[in-house]
Design a protein around this nucleic acid. Structure first.
Lengths: 192, 192
DNA sequence: TTACATACGGCACTGCGGTCTCGTAACATG
DNA sequence: CATGTTACGAGACCGCAGTGCCGTATGTAA
């Protein structure tokens, strides 16, 4: 699967892909996703346009690769933490790592709204790994007796992540306080 | 404010605006937001392109007007309902009204990600009215002693709405069960 | 009636995303 | 070496968003 070498014809220039990802990352960070044209990326990378389209379906997939390269930590939570502390730590880390990349992620979510195939890839690469991680924290909490046994883990994951997508997509700042408040609401609820 | 009649020069054709909104709504519902071109809208409305740009900054604002015309119910909650029932009713109604319009709303949220000025208008027209309404339900619940007195109303509003944005933007179905589960999690929390 | 101001439909223009073709380059096979 | 196959940079081409300009139409004010 990794060896997609047809072994026939001229081999691909192995430096072109990384050069395109680097160019895309630099330009998007400097000017913002929608102010960076495909033409500008390939020019900066010093390649032809087809060389990009031979590797990615379009700008969204290229930028997804370019940014997930650095965001793909998704580290496992410490097993000795309580659910509240583990969740808070997860979201604080997420917000820190997103401080620089949030505009790009927002634009990728936007791109996915009109492109069902890219939405699938974005889910696989960005959404699902984080959902799985949070689900694991919650299930650990259930087993430890910290959380109720009848909770809907999938729905809780969606509530937690939605609570961070919503302000992000509205252009608000994601700080530590928000992580704490968010986790507190979902754990304790607001009812008396 | 309503009489933006300069009283000088040729008056605007009063039928052009409604014709454009109707054309936009029909085409977007039929083909989807990103498959409808500005050119197609003005052609269907039987007007020139500048006639559109004289009234709206672009497609996003036109479609926002065209769809909020029908979505702008935002009815006040019944005062005799408990917080849980009022919230459930609110989200069930929201999901029903969005069953047809959700794709368009998704595309508008997408448009707002690369256009800060449109984001402001989208917040004012779509986000804030609903946030105010849910905040009122929550505050009523606090006064009635149904909710704790120390809750962060704004954060709770964000958690509730985020929990509906997240699945919507991921292309999932918004049904009554989701409304119930969502409200249940936020009210009761997941902790034991 | 004569200015003046604004709206109108139509169209040209630029820059973009995406597709396609050209001539050339780099590899494997025989 | 010759042949076949694929990648390469370059650039033509299409449809679109957005802007600007044209000649014309429709209103108000002198």
């Amino acid at each position: 699967m990794s060896a997609d070498e047809s072994s026939k014809g001229r081999p691909r220039d192995r430096s072109a892909g990384p050069a395109l990802m680097a160019a895309a990352r630099e330009l998007v960070l400097a000017r913002g996703y929608e102010d960076v044209s495909i033409r500008a990326i390939v020019e900066r990378a010093g390649v032809g346009r087809q060389t990009l389209y031979r590797r990615w379906p379009g700008k969204a997939d290229l930028v997804l690769d370019a940014f997930l390269e650095s965001v793909d930590w998704v580290r496992a939570p410490d097993a000795d933490l309580g659910v509240g502390a583990a969740l808070e730590r997860y979201f604080r880390d997420l917000f820190v790592n997103l401080r620089e990349d949030a505009p790009a992620i927002r634009s990728l979510i936007a791109s996915a709204q009109g492109d069902a195939e890219f939405l699938v890839r974005f889910r696989e690469r960005f959404v699902e790994p984080r959902a799985v991680l949070v689900a694991a924290i919650l299930e650990r909490g259930v087993e430890a007796g910290e959380l109720r046994g009848d909770i809907d883990v999938g729905a809780t994951v969606a509530v937690l992540h939605g609570a961070f997508w919503y302000p992000m997509l509205l252009g608000e700042v994601l700080d530590d306080d928000r992580a704490k408040t968010l986790v507190d609401i979902v754990l304790r609820g607001v009812a008396r």
